[in-house]
Design a protein around this nucleic acid. Sequence first.
DNA 1: CGAGAATAGTTTTTT
DNA 2: ACTATTCTCG
Length: 768
Amino acid sequence: MVNSSQAARQILEGLNENQREAVETIDGPLLILAGPGSGKTRVITQRIAYLVRVVGVSPYRIGAVTFTNKAAREMRARLTPSLGPAAEHVTAKTFHTFCAQVLRQEGESIGVKRDFVIYDDSDQMSLMKRVMKELELDPKRFAPRAILSAISSAKSQLLGFEGLSYKSGSYFEEIVVRAYEHYEGLLQKSSALDFDDLLLKTYQLFDRVPESAKKYQERYVHFMVDEFQDTNVAQYAIAKQVAYAYSNICVVGDPDQSIYTWRNADIRNILSFQDDYPQAKVIALEENYRSTQTILDAAKSLIAANTQRVDKDLWTQNGEGVPIVVSEGYNEGEEAQFVVKEIQSLTRGRNPSYKLGDVAVMYRVNAQSRALEESCLRYGMPYQVVGGLKFYQRQEVKDVTAYLRLIANSDDDVSLERVINTPTRGIGQRTVDELTRLARNADMSMFSAISSLAQGAPQESVTDNNMRNPFPARSLRALTDFHDLIRSLQAEREKSDLLEIIDSILERTGYQSYLMDQSDRGEERLENIQEFKASARDFLMFGRDEALTAFLESVSLVADVDSMEDRADAITLITLHQAKGLEFPVVFMVGMEEGLLPHVRSLDDPAQLEEERRLCYVGVTRARERLYLCRSFRRGFRGGSEPSVPSRFLLDIPAKLITAPVQNQPKSKTIKSAAWTPGARRARNFSGNSENASSNGDRSERPARPDAATTAMPHFSTGDKVKHKTFGEGIVVECKPSHEDFEVTVAFKDGAGVKRLMQGFAKLEKVE
DNA sequence: CGAGAATAGTTTTTT
DNA sequence: ACTATTCTCG
């Protein structure tokens, strides 16, 4: 702090008026509404720098929670240049990581064991299945997923099962409450917390144990929350608790980018904030530094159609830029091909305008990455997929993780069940069921139950009254062997490091040979385990004791975006959700179709539709210079393939921002293709009618006189597969009355493009 | 008990 | 298409 006014000048330099005000507002609650590309991250980091270098706040007393680890890491990285090593003392974590650490530290006072494991989705699912079994609930009648999500929603609102009122009084709700209670019991027995517990328990800790709360309240003189629009009630409550002493709480968000309400994010937090802190200052960042005028205009028209929003005035000094490109393909293969070819032309040549790292392809669902990957492989385009088939979710990785978890915490029943017979060691379903029952009766974890059995202990403590040892000698033997195996692996923790432990697991449980015996994919799986091991290497620096816990925690809490590398030599394939917070010079959004974006599951709910629109908005605003919106006429779906209709969101982008549609591939010159906008608009409006007009009977039955051009019957309807003698096979995307005939718009396969044909003249044949 | 075959269901998004 | 679960047989 040589000269604080000099530092101030340096920090504030290059900030616009509002940004500057945000940085300089250091006392009391502050709400920053930050539009996309408005320099939000910059403001957050400069604000922290300002606090430290100008105001003289100790970095140790500044906390910032973000949504992803990547964002946290980036924040730290951007602090380092101005703070140097002191940046390390600033807390920059995700909510979940922050809470996990609080609980490891302080949790015991509310009954959270220090070595708790964190259950992810699939662990939760296993546990819920068991809950339902034990409560004799029919999983066909009540989807375990639905129950879990009801529980998750309750926890996100800080409701325990006791506090869950029978609001609707529906039977389902009653089931949820019962399942919730039992589920909690099993978590407790396993010394496990699920994701929501990390938040809920932290809240409860701060609520019930003032001494613990105080530690954090006194430490964090300044507390910041990024992506505030995506926080849930629990997260906001925790933030309030932490900021209790000083009320220096700064939240940053953009309601228009709220895309996680399905995960219980509550956009009302922004309103609550202003209620809770009436003295809060509100600063809006509306100047966009990222995108061209064209892209920003598209984004604005798109989002303006939402009714549940406060209008905001985004603007930019950037130039108009190039028009948005809309492309249409026959199927997802062609769509992907277009994307790859286009990227090639942008990135190849003597002085290419872009490098591969500048390009991202975004989609609504992970499954869409497949066609893109195939296309990339075919044309030799380097790519990286973010997320997708998640690494830590792979079977072999989960198996090894389960062994590690058992070493750390043998009460973890879910992990135990996972590997007790993997590789097979003669412990079948029957034995496991019996063991579960015993453990349940004795109110202990499964491992403890085996323990008691193994010690040949007074079996009465384990078995129920009139039943003696229920296991045949062979099963009992297998159980005790397993028990000894885990015990001895645990003992190894004393003398070996993490990598050695993993090797031991592979070796001594026979897992390695088990994988190799499954000859087909064994090799690949073993490689995955090697990769897993490599990721464990980062934790060797921790003490022998902590390494395992820390590693397991990171396995649970690190998302895939987090490991995304900034590679200059590969394009990025990413979901729209994961793309939040990122930006790319060139963005392709694929699958711009009804049913995908907006997704089918949101079609019947206006609120969800608005969220889909926000998601689309997030995608559009990731683009700096070039935006491509792609769709195809057919979309593969669970094996089959179905015709699809352009997304309503396409229709909300003013035509003047868009170039003529790009067709795949337009060698044919004869017939002008349909301009996408009016055509698409009509196609959408018409499809319903044409359906009614033509398909109210057996679709395969052909009209008697196909040449009668003037008959008032359309012969085709949207989605029909047709054949033309020059253009080949195609699919009808539109069929509308025109001059006493019908104009049939057909998207032909194999790059023949989209043609408008008159039914009476074109010899179109329907094919099956 | 284990392994392979038959069958049913299905998640959109992720900390 | 893909997986997860159930069935069947050795």
